[in-house]
Amino acid sequence: MIEVKNLHKSFSGVEVLKGISTNFEKGKTNLIIGQSGSGKTVFLKCLLGLFNYEEGSIAYDGKIFSQLTEDEKRNLRAEIGMVFQGSALFDSMTIAENVMFPLQMFADQSKSEMEDRVDFVLKRVNLDNAHNKMPSEASGGMQKRVAIARAIVNNPKYLFCDEPNSGLDPKTAIVIDNLIQEITDEYQITTVINSHDMNSVMEIGEKIVFLKDGLKAWEGSNKTIFKTDNEVVTDFVYSSELMKKVRQMYIEEKQ
């Protein structure tokens, strides 16, 4: 579980996060949603320790990140898996080498044990025969799956995903969403996903935190987001014609 209390972050005097408090639960897919510029990416980078923050605290299973020593932070980071928006695969390495990389850096395993583990996770993300391909030879969906495989290869306790289905077609996006949810449930990981994709919200939003102008505007789940009267949330959720029709049908069904 990740607990965030009163998080403040500024850039050159401009406050981007204005006191966010929330919890991200273990074994659930937790979504951070909001418009572009609402502070989602900054929030995620603060959670990952890539940005320092001025005020507030972030606790990973009770361990407050800012109070940890450098060694403790390094150990904690070894328990974190991250899927970047652009996958961030190392383009000088093959797909198998990319997935093996965290094991080589942190795990005390023999080469054959590492290879077995790589085979297992690549199979888990349905990439059985892509070991020797270079990232540039893989499609966007494949690259995302490799990034997920790399993120989970070291059995992380926390998984972070920054817009994991951006740039993907709707069908592949759903495959990626479902894969993340299955892995979260299977390995009881605390998963935090940064997204503005309404399909993801509906599919896997077991917990949703809605950000607006650096503040938490709403908190709930995919079951409650369509029932909320919060205008800020409804403006965002029902901004497309498709979603407006869905809402109309929902209201008519209710009547």
């Binding site: 974190i80 652009g86 961030a88 965290p102």
Partner: peptide, 13 residues
């Protein structure tokens, strides 16, 4: 630019 350095940092490298 492609966030590969961020990926290294997140891994604790």
């Amino acid at each position: 630019v492609t966030e590969q350095i961020d990926a290294l940092e997140v891994m604790g490298i």
